[in-house]
Design a protein around this nucleic acid. Structure first.
Lengths: 402, 402
DNA sequence: TGGATTTAATTTAGACCCTAAAATAAATGC
DNA sequence: GCATTTATTTTAGGGTCTAAATTAAATCCA
């Protein structure tokens, strides 16, 4: 009498073993069991399956490290070549491709300069197909399978449908990006907001673990945010939740890149800061609507060195951030707010007025125990997150496909 | 060789049967199986357990209704007397107690006028103990167990710790309310925000089912909100999430009951509307800081009848609501926003300016497909929700205690 | 009236998955 | 070389589910 498996415990436990190996590296069966709350007998059974599917291998005994009394542990680890994933990060005028193996390690990374704002949807799809195909032939030779692709894009995306809704890096809106790539490469293609990618990485870091309600704010050309609830990004109905940059500071206020007025982004983003500054300060020439890192550094320097006009501009940005933060705390009541992104370079010049504005706006009961801290910016983190997300999403498929 | 059950399927399926009976009423084993995706053999086994524990009973065959061909269904239903729960709703100058049986039906309801603002924490605990004890002796005679108590309170509460953080109905803050009652009555005592209670009811209504991201805004003396994500209220780190009323419309704007300036509540709540109106309009006398329903009806009437000053006041409130809604949509991107509470009486006078403000504040991509609709107000809904929440929370305990 | 038919509920047989305990494997210590 | 220690595998057994078979209790209809 055949029957469908009525519960998912084997499946869940198998995924737990894989993720445990990916997170902690090679381990003995007995330790995997302890770490995941399952018996070593079960780990034996699961690893036998995984060995047979060639998803894991046994490490040869390490003769250099003395093993102590008793039978030595036999470490198992993920077969790094069992599969790989690609993360493609699209930001203004730049395309980054990173290849990660089945164990989550970066195996290849490349950057391309692209005039993203001039692309049509067709151009973009063709470009992505070309670059991904190139990476596949050069960097994927040893991998048995391309398990998934993650497109990490600054802006608003609908992950569910794989549709780009709107990005500051692109001049078009509402275009399906995932479907053509999924068709072309025969694997799942995830579309993710870049802030969600970064937040996924930060949420697993020991320093920030143990905060089930984590908010990550990304300052930069625009202002992005990710709200992680129990380790999962909150995306809302169609993926456009957490648009902190377009929440309001001042009705009818400064003009935002979105076309509306009074958004937080219209006060505290790079372009907003530079727009204010260039009227009154002597700053490097260049496209002041899309200030470069050098331009922003020059402006930040001025504030740090005590220029009163520059300080006033950052203080006003901090005030807008503080009022935005008040809404964030009133509505999400997070444990921790991390402020990062390239714009953290100016955080010191905004922090005091931000805190003042927050205290002015919100009663202490609603500020509660929320901690607000900045976090150094690492531009490669987006792709690390994209790779982790792609692997998580495809583990289940890899399992059933073998 | 004994072993702990390694999975929770029996437990989960048993809960599913109980909740299915509570939601849909008496049903045959075969139908319960179909509805919950489990085999009727399993339902037979589970219902045998539940019959033995006297948590359900078999209905006698209904001779009046012809059963059609085949063996007639034997309906089982929850034993209504197996347990009961009490919901206590505390609002300004009023205390309501409702008793619900194990099937979720209301068995008793009573209201008391109480000068809530004059109570000390000790007074309140003593009052609650007295009223609950009285209800226990009169209304609970037939029930075998008091399974839980839900305190539904307007304001900010920490459900986890059972601590009141701040309520407009009380003049003190930061008081533990659940622990003394839990001790006194020997059952779990849940502390819930009133908006969460109402939203829990609305989220299960057929008209609003199928919206995994549901926001319920409660207009009234103050402004409350509940954000339901997949049927569960989002409470944040310490229970003070979803404080829409204290999110900001205008930095440095109108004075709010919380002591800060520019909150949405300071423009669109009953007290804010009345405060504006009494300066320029001829309105009923009374405590204009806590306007009565009659006073608010009089004001609303004026606006409906076309009084330009009254219309201006409601329009400005609608504008504040619209800007608050913009933040809500940008940050939560809900499928549906329901506007209810006693304040919906004036919604018609606010709706147009609210929509105008929303369109002015937020790009259409971020408004997305979110629907915003009002919903008639029923003041008894809070306690219905409280009873449903208390039963859900205690099912598991009832099971294991038998 | 009594068998055929229909549908519900229960029982049975079998499969899966897990764990504890026993057995086996592979080291070190002395 | 044997006792000890620790890891892994095997064995035995319990829980839970489902499909199929069986039993139960009606209606239909000749």
């Amino acid at each position: 009498m055949a029957s469908q498996p009525h519960d998912s415990s084997r499946h869940d436990n198998t995924l737990a073993v894989i993720r445990s190996l990916r997170e902690h590296g090679p381990a003995a069966r007995v330790d995997i069991g302890t770490r995941n709350g399952i018996s070593s007998a079960t780990v034996t059974s699961i690893s036998a399956d995984l060995l047979q599917q060639e998803l894991i291998t046994e490490l040869p005994p390490d003769v250099s490290r003395p093993s102590g009394r008793g039978r030595p542990k036999t470490l198992i680890h993920l077969d790094t070549e069992a599969a790989c994933v690609i993360c493609v990060k699209l930001s203004i005028n730049e395309l980054q491709l990173v290849v990660g193996d089945f164990a989550g390690q970066v195996r290849h990374s490349e950057h391309h300069s692209v005039a993203t704002l001039t692309l049509t949807p067709g151009d973009l799809t063709a470009l992505l197909e070309e670059k991904i195909a190139a990476v596949c032939t050069t960097a994927l030779a040893n991998h048995r399978r391309l398990a998934g692709i993650c497109l990490a894009i600054q802006g608003v995306v609908s992950s569910h449908s794989g549709t780009l809704i709107w990005s500051p890096a692109l001049s078009f809106r509402n275009a399906p990006l995932s479907p053509p790539l999924a068709e072309r490469f025969g694997c799942p293609v995830l579309l993710e907001n870049d802030a969600n990618c970064i937040a996924s990485v930060l949420a697993t870091q020991p320093a920030y673990a143990g905060y089930p309600n984590l908010v990550v704010i990304m300052l930069g050309y625009g202002i992005g945010m990710s709200v992680m609830i129990d380790g999962v990004p909150f995306v809302g109905a169609n993926g456009s939740a957490a648009e902190f940059g377009h929440s309001k500071y001042q009705p009818g206020g400064a003009l935002c890149a979105c076309g509306k007025r009074g958004c937080i982004e219209a006060y505290a983003s790079d372009y907003a800061l530079y727009r204010e500054a260039r009227e009154v300060l002597d700053l490097p020439a260049g496209d002041s609507a899309h200030p470069s890192e050098q331009q922003m550094q020059a402006l930040t320097q001025l504030a740090m060195q005590g220029d009163p006009e520059a300080q006033r501009i950052f203080a006003e940005a901090g005030r807008a951030l503080g009022y935005g933060m008040a809404n964030l705390l009133a509505l999400f009541n997070p444990d921790l707010v991390l402020i990062t992104g390239s714009g953290v370079r100016g955080y010191a010049a905004m922090q005091e007025s931000m805190q003042t504005a927050l205290d002015e706006a919100l009663v202490s009961e609603l500020i509660g125990p929320t901690r607000i801290v900045s976090c150094p910016w690492d531009r490669d983190m987006t792709c690390l997150g994209g790779i982790a997300i792609a692997l998580q999403a495809t583990d289940s498929q890899i399992l059933s496909a073998s």
